[in-house]
Write a protein that binds this DNA or RNA. Structure first.
Lengths: 188, 188
DNA sequence: AGAAGACTAGACTGATCGGTCTAGTGATGA
DNA sequence: TCATCACTAGACCGATCAGTCTAGTCTTCT
């Protein structure tokens, strides 16, 4: 259970962390290698296209994490607003753990890079996945499909903007204020 | 009137465009120099700290542009929602002009770079300036100061998230949908 | 005319970039 | 025992990076 993470996993995790902090172009391959404790040869064995492959893997991994947080937040939620609130608080906590702002949790990381088309397509798929996840719960909680999709999209838009502002301020309060901003003061 | 832009201005404009497209770390000094048609010596004459100075100048310039669009949008607006709608449509148009998505209009550009603290402070000031601009009009249009500030902040959060999604989709429709998302269907 | 300072010009530097390549090492199966 | 193959290891490559430095060209003031 506590076995060593595989070389490949260590690479993806180091890359995710560093890309989040310094961006794609701002992170050197050598930094990733050093942080993962892996030589260059291994990187190109597991990711033949090198840095770009690694970035895509990091993005996929991150999208999966976000979807997982959505699941956790909405699984037992009595209504949409409760789910959103739980999600925002969870992410605010994560924001604070990732020492308050070097990080861009979803996909700031996906816009850089020489291979822009490939990255953009990957990022789009990731957003779609996340919005679909949220939309699913909106339907489960009683909304018709169209409304649900819209609701999920607006939620993710607000969250994305909120994270940006939180980051620039190094302060997660904005995230916690999102439910009120989107849906007005709590009624209970 | 149609006189040549000064060397300094050409540098800032070229830098703004390139940073927007490829990010801070993704843009080489040589590209900026080539696009501006300026030799290296001139850059370091006008911006002694080089690339970092240039990035700050580019951010200031961009913030000024955004504030100007806010002024244009709200100056003659009969109410808050009209102002927001005009702003979103203007920015959607801008988005389409900047060939649909390489661009990050406000400050995605401010998170990279070795000199993170300096950049972040600059970005924070720019956001503050923009929110203050919007807040001013919210008050002019009859809201009490606290409400106005909140309204402006929520508006900018939504816009920021909306631009991100528009970018990843290469489609400005999200921006035009923002007023409805934030304030419900148009009442008139 | 001549000195001074603002500005242009680009060759040059050392560091670092992403990526390639050859040489191993260690486990598996015949 | 030996061949195979997945994987590790890191020296090495040309390109490009941001930044420095010296030289030269204007403009302006005296």
């Amino acid at each position: 259970m506590t076995e060593e993470a595989s070389t490949k996993d260590r690479l993806v995790q180091a890359a995710t962390r560093l890309f989040r902090q310094r961006g794609y172009d701002g992170t050197g391959l050598s930094e990733i290698l050093a942080e993962a404790g892996v030589p260059k040869g291994s990187l190109y064995h597991h990711f033949p296209e090198g840095k770009a492959d690694l970035a895509c893997a990091a993005a996929d991994w991150t999208a999966g994490e976000i979807v997982r947080v959505i699941d956790d937040s909405f699984h037992a939620a009595p209504d949409w607003r409760h789910g959103v609130t739980t999600f925002c608080y969870k992410m605010a906590k994560l924001f604070d753990i990732l020492n308050s702002a070097d990080a861009c949790p979803i996909f700031g990381l996906m816009f850089d890079g020489p291979d822009q088309a490939r990255f953009r397509i990957h990022a789009e798929a990731a957003f779609t996945r996340i919005i679909a996840g949220a939309s699913h719960y909106a339907q489960t909680l009683g909304m018709p499909p169209d409304t649900a999709h819209d609701m999920a999209e607006t939620f993710i838009i607000g969250f994305q903007g909120g994270w940006t502002l939180a980051r620039v301020r190094r302060n997660s309060d904005v995230l916690r204020s999102l439910p009120t901003r989107l849906y007005g003061p709590a009624s209970a």
